[in-house]
């Protein structure tokens, strides 16, 4: 009798386990507990201009989920590889209006609006889908911290900037939900799956 009971409980447990709960992505970053509230890491307010000289800030992006990276057009090292992966993401979600792409330059001195316009034109992408943003250098480099991207000026580094090639997935509320190493196509394979999960949440 006892064994029978245990078996029933087991079947029940397996049954519950099988009820496919829709998978959710975690919220990445430090969590603060303030009183009764849990505060998750969020991209702080920013305001820059894109390749059409249009102001892009948090509210421009908040109806969308977006993929972000930090780059500069004259980057001699990892940026071309990362851009190629961003382009892969772009091509997959080109027709999905919920998804946007954002590339922040680390080098606004050289990457002005014209330079970014030419770059996006040469990539054959539309400015309503993929924003290339420039603005105040300190604000851009400070913001990289909030995306957990290494980005700082270093005369010794190739091209004058030391940086990591992360691609971040940000949700409508400004929370980072996933990321990939933009230099590794296999890592971006996983990110593509995560974008689909986020779209279905």
């Amino acid at each position: 009798m006892k064994i029978y009971n245990i078996l029933v409980i087991c079947f029940f447990a397996i049954g519950l386990g099988c009820q496919s709960k829709p998978k959710k992505l975690p919220i990445i970053g430090q969590v603060k507990i303030v009183g009764q509230d849990t505060i998750y890491h969020k991209i702080p307010p920013f305001s820059f201009v894109n390749q059409d000289s249009m102001t892009v800030d948090n509210s421009t992006l908040s109806p969308h989920i977006y993929l972000a990276d930090f780059f500069f057009t004259s980057c001699p090292s990892i940026c071309p590889k990362v851009t190629k992966q961003m382009l892969r993401l772009h091509d997959k979600y080109k027709d999905n209006d919920r998804v946007r792409l954002v590339s922040f330059t680390m080098d606004p001195k050289r990457d002005d609006v014209n330079k970014l316009k030419l770059y996006s034109k040469n990539l054959e992408v539309s400015s309503s889908k993929w924003h290339f943003l420039t603005g105040n250098k300190d604000e851009l480099l400070d913001l990289a911290d909030d995306y957990f991207v290494v980005a700082y000026e270093d005369d010794e580094a190739p091209g004058g900037f030391d940086h990591s090639g992360k691609i971040l997935l940000v949700d409508e509320k400004g929370h980072i939900r996933s990321f990939a190493e933009g230099t590794e196509p296999e890592s971006v394979d996983e990110l593509l799956k995560d974008v689909d999960i986020l779209l279905n949440e």
Binding site: P80, L87, N122, L123
Partner: peptide, 12 residues
């Protein structure tokens, strides 16, 4: 790219 194909009109 590493296969020598370049990228769109950006990298030959």
């Amino acid at each position: 790219m590493s296969d020598g194909t370049g990228l769109k009109r950006v990298y030959p």
